[in-house]
Design a protein around this nucleic acid. Structure first.
Lengths: 128, 128
DNA sequence: ATGACACTTTAGACAAAGTCTATATAAGCC
DNA sequence: GGCTTATATAGACTTTGTCTAAAGTGTCAT
C-alpha cells in the first residue's frame, strides 16, 4: 500500500489486491496469468481492470513491461536495471544482469529524441 | 529469385512477388503492411500466404523478425548484425549498429541452452 | 504425355490478446 | 449526507495471427 501511494497511485481495493499477488518475489507474468490468479484468490477482478492496473503500474515504475513474444507482454516485478533471457522453446523468461555491458555505451540517439528505455532480450533454446 | 534459391526456398510466383516488393531498400514492414502493398500491386496474395512467406523468409535468414510492439511483429530487410531504435510515439523504427558494444560480451547463458538471437530495442520518444 | 506425389496457395473460420464503451460503484471532499 | 471525480465492470468489439480443408501447381519417373 505504501508502495502504491509513494508511486502516486490511489490504493484501491483491486489495485492493492493485484499488488499483493504480484509483488511477492520476482515474477514474470502475463496479463492473462494475473487475471487467472485473481480468479483463484476468491476476489476476482475484471479483465479491463487487470489491464488498466498493469499498465498503470508499469507507467509508474512499479512493474516493467517486457515485450518478448508478439503474442504476450510480460510484467516483470524486478525493476532494477537488467535484461532478459527468453527460452523460445519452453517459454521460460529469466533475468540477467547486463549493466556492465551496456551502461553508458549507448550510441547517440536520433535527433530530437530522448531515451525511454532499453530492452535486451537474449533468445535461447535448449541444446538438443 | 537467385536469393530465394540460394536460401533453399522454392521461388514460387507469390514468393518472388513478395520478395520484389519487400527487398528494395531497407524496410521495416509488418505482415499487415505487406498484405496491403500486395493488394495495390495488381496481383493480390492471400493473408495466409503472406504470413507463411514472411515466416519462411525469416527462418531462412532473408528477413529478420523484430518484436517491438505487443501488437506487431516487424520484418527487417537488413539482415546484418544490428539493433533497433523505436520511437514509441511516432511508431518509427530505425536501425542502429551496436556490434562494438555487445559483441563477444554476452554473459554465460543458462545451463543447457544455446543462443538463438539477441534483440536490443532502444525505445525513444520525441523531446517535448 | 500422363499419372502420382509433394508442395503451395487460398478463403474463410477460428483463436487469443487487448481495447473500448456505457454503466455501475466507490472514494474524496465540502 | 450530497456532489464530483475517479475507478471498476461486463461484454462487445478489434486486431493480429493461426488453422483447416480444398483447390491449384510443379516435378519427376515412367
Amino acid at each position: 500500500m505504501e508502495r502504491l501511494q509513494t508511486a502516486g497511485i490511489q490504493p484501491t481495493r483491486q489495485r492493492v489486491h493485484i499488488a499483493q499477488v504480484l509483488l511477492t518475489g520476482n515474477q514474470h507474468l502475463s496479463a492473462d496469468q494475473v487475471l487467472e490468479k485473481m480468479k483463484h484468490t476468491g476476489k476476482p477482478v475484471s479483465k479491463a481492470t487487470v489491464y488498466n492496473t498493469l499498465g498503470l503500474f508499469a507507467a509508474r515504475g512499479i512493474l516493467r513491461e517486457v515485450i518478448i513474444d508478439p503474442a504476450r507482454v510480460f510484467y516483470d516485478t524486478n525493476n532494477t536495471p537488467h535484461h532478459h533471457v527468453y527460452n523460445t522453446v519452453t517459454g521460460e523468461l529469466s533475468d540477467i544482469d547486463l549493466r556492465h555491458v551496456l551502461s553508458e555505451q549507448l550510441p547517440e540517439l536520433p535527433e530530437g529524441t530522448e531515451l525511454e528505455g532499453v530492452d535486451v532480450v537474449i533468445r535461447v533454446r535448449p541444446v538438443r
